[in-house]
């Protein structure tokens, strides 16, 4: 009866010894949960709070949280340009607030990385009582789990919607009614939901695959 998946101090999961490491932006939000997922898979993780923490990383996850808080702290600590630079040559995955931060337009004045050709609408489903969980098909996950036909259990918490996706960005997943909830642009990935709140590692492995992780 685990109430909150991956709500653990990450150091409780043994750290793997590899040269390959990815970062998790640790300004605010669900960064522990992502770290626990990555460590369970067997990948070394580093918390990123300053620009110099990006050095030597193969990819970065921007977690869920409050996008206004994460954006403000990124500006205050001079992370905006280093993150944009990092994203030109590395994989970055944003979940929920992270997806908003990756977008080029959130229809509201707040700091954004603008790395992906997507526009988002914040809190598109309403307030917390409208937060929901639903199984959705994500065909792209076949790349890392060819024999796994299960849908993905997507958890939406005061979630944004991806309103428009323009090339080179592509749609990765939608709800039954066609509304877009995941997109990819090269090695950049955006999900409106929270795979870090599940025990299903497929999305994390998909991101690691984009980051160049070979050790399956």
């Amino acid at each position: 009866m685990e109430h909150a998946p991956n709500l653990l101090p990450p150091e409780k999961v043994p750290a793997p010894r590899t040269d390959f490491a990815v970062g998790v932006l640790a300004l605010q939000g669900s960064f522990w949960e992502h770290e626990v997922m990555l460590r369970k898979i067997g990948v070394a993780v580093r918390e990123v709070r300053r620009a110099e923490d990006l050095e030597g990383l193969s990819g970065l996850i921007i977690p869920g949280g409050e996008s206004t808080t994460i954006g403000k702290l990124a500006v205050e600590f001079g992370l905006l340009e280093p993150l944009r630079e990092f994203g030109k040559s590395h994989a970055i995955w944003g979940t929920c607030a992270g997806a908003i931060f990756l977008s080029k337009d959130a229809r509201r004045r707040q700091p954004l990385l603008g790395l992906m050709n997507i526009t988002v609408e914040r809190n598109a489903f309403g307030r917390q009582i409208a937060s929901f969980e639903v199984d959705i098909p994500v065909p792209a996950l076949k790349a890392v789990a060819p024999d796994d036909d299960r849908p993905f259990h997507a958890i939406f918490i005061r979630a944004p919607l991806i309103e428009t996706v323009t090339p080179p960005a592509e749609v990765l997943a939608t709800l039954e009614d066609g509304r877009i909830v995941a997109a990819q642009q090269g090695r950049l990935l955006a999900t409106a939901f929270h795979p870090e709140l599940t025990d299903d590692t497929r999305f994390h492995r998909y991101f690691l695959h984009l980051a160049g992780w070979k050790n399956k």
Binding site: G29, E33, G64, G65
Partner: peptide
């Protein structure tokens, strides 16, 4: 594909998103 609302996981989940914040 029935969507579920109001679950305990969603309630705890919002607090998980507030972590490290004020």
């Amino acid at each position: 594909m029935e969507a579920k609302t109001g679950s305990y996981e969603l309630k705890v989940g919002l607090a998980q998103m507030l972590k490290g914040g004020v």
